[in-house]
Design a protein around this nucleic acid. Structure first.
Lengths: 219, 219
DNA sequence: CCGTTAATCCAACGTCTGTTGGATAATGGA
DNA sequence: TCCATTATCCAACAGACGTTGGATTAACGG
C-alpha cells in the first residue's frame, strides 16, 4: 500500500497537465463525492475518475478507503475550526466593552459561521454524516464538536459573568444553534426559493433568537 | 420478482414460531439497520439474518432494495405525522382562549414532538439520511417536511393574527426548531451524560426560546 | 550518463453485492 | 382427498467492490 508519501521533489511519471499535487486533487474530488453520497455509495474507481487518475494511484496516495475518508474530514473540519476560532477571538475582545458591543460581537460571530457553511455545503453534509456513524460519535465529539461548542459557550458564559447577558444552559443553546444553521444550509441546497431572501430571513431569525435569549438581564 | 403479495389467508411454509406477518418483521429489522448504518452499508442478507429469514424471502415480500428502503421511511414518517397532527389539532383548539393558553399549547405541542423523537431515535436518523440524498430532497420536502412545517407555521400565524403572539418568519422558526430537536436526539444517542438532565435542559431551552420569540406583542 | 526513487497505470485477486429461477412444503378451498 | 396458491429456502448469476503486485516511465542526485 506504500502509505502516503509526498516529497518536495518529485520523480515519477508525468502529471497530466495538473499543477496541484495529486494528493490534493484526489482529496478534493473525494470530499465532494463523499459529502454528496456518503462513504459506502462512493467507489474508489469513481473517486479516481473524478480526479483524473487510476484507482491504484488513489490508494497509493491516500492508503485505505477509510483513511481517505478521514483525511477528507480532517481537511474540512480544520478549515471550519480555524474560521471559528478567529471569529471567537475577535468576539472575546469585545467583552471589555458595553453590553451593546457584546451583543453585536455575538451577532458577528454567528454571521461568520453561517457564511462559512453557506459557502461550503459539503461541510454540513460531512458533519451530518459523521454524526450518523455510531462508532464515530466519541471521536467527532471530542475532536471537533466539543471544542467548538466550548469556544462559543465560554464566550456566552463570560458575557453573562460580565453582567451583560443571561444564559442558564449555554451548551444546549450553542448546539441547537449549530443544528439550526445546518438545517438552514440543507434547505438552501434543496433550492425551492430565492436564496438571497432565505439567507436574509435566517440571519434575522438568529439575531432575534439571540436577542430573546441573551437580552440584557436588567431591562 | 413477485412483488409484495400479502393476503389475509396465508398458505405456505411454516413461519418459524413468529406470530407477526413476515413483512412487518422484515420492515422492522430493516428500519433499525438502515437508520443505524444507511442504505448502502446494509446488505439484504444482513436484513434477512436480522429478521430470521432468507434473502429471497426479503425480496419476495418487499421487492427491490430501494422499495424496501422507501417502505421503511413511509412507516416511520407516517407515525410521526399522525402524532404531530393530533397534537396540532389540540393546540388549534386553544386559539380561542387567552394568550397564556396559546403559549402553553405551543409548549405542549413542542413537548409532544420532542418526546416522540426521543423515544424513537431511528426517526431522526432516517430523517437526516433522507435530507442527505440530493435526488430525494423534493420528495421528502413535499411529502413530509412541508406539510409538517405548514402545520405548525399556520398555527403560529393564526396565533399572531389573534394578537397573542408576534412572528415574522414562522417557516424559518419551525425548521430551526425541528433541526434543534434532531440535534438534541443525536446528542442523547451519543451518550456522554445523564439523559434525564439533558432532556430537562433541552425542554427548558425550547420553552425559553418560544417565550423570547413569541412573547406577547404588547407587554 | 547512470542508478535510484517514486508516481502512475494495468491487471488481477477474492469477496460481497442485489437479484432471480426453481424446488419444496404447507395451507385453504373444493 | 386433491388442487391451486404462496411462503420459504437453496443455489447461482453477473457485476462491482477494495486492495495489491508488478511493469513502465519520468525526474532527480551523483
Amino acid at each position: 500500500m506504500a502509505a502516503m508519501t509526498m516529497p518536495r521533489r518529485r520523480p515519477g511519471r508525468p502529471r497530466r497537465e495538473e499543477t496541484r499535487p495529486t494528493r490534493e486533487v484526489v482529496l478534493a474530488a473525494a470530499t465532494a463525492l463523499f459529502a454528496r453520497r456518503g462513504f459506502d455509495a462512493v467507489g474508489l474507481r469513481e473517486v479516481a475518475a473524478a480526479a483524473g487518475v487510476d484507482v491504484a494511484t488513489v490508494s497509493h496516495h491516500t492508503g485505505t478507503k477509510a483513511q481517505l475518508y478521514d483525511a477528507c474530514f480532517a481537511r474540512v473540519f480544520a478549515a471550519e475550526r480555524d474560521v471559528l476560532e478567529a471569529a471567537a477571538g475577535r468576539a472575546r475582545q469585545a467583552l471589555d466593552s458595553g453590553p451593546a458591543e457584546v451583543r453585536r460581537a455575538l451577532h458577528d460571530l454567528v454571521d461568520v459561521f453561517v457564511d462559512f457553511l453557506e459557502d461550503r455545503p459539503e461541510t454540513t453534509a460531512l458533519w451530518l454524516r459523521r454524526w450518523l456513524e455510531p462508532q464515530r460519535h466519541a471521536e467527532l465529539d471530542e475532536r471537533y464538536a466539543a471544542p467548538l461548542y466550548r469556544l462559543v459557550a465560554d464566550l456566552l458564559t463570560a458575557a453573562a459573568a460580565a453582567g451583560a447577558l443571561v444564559e442558564p444552559a449555554p451548551h444546549v443553546t450553542v448546539r441547537s444553534l449549530v443544528w439550526a444553521v445546518h438545517g438552514h444550509v440543507v434547505a438552501l441546497a434543496a433550492g425551492g426559493g430565492p436564496q438571497a431572501r432565505q439567507r436574509r430571513e435566517f440571519r434575522a431569525f438568529v439575531h432575534r433568537l439571540l436577542d430573546g435569549l441573551y437580552g440584557p438581564a436588567t431591562p
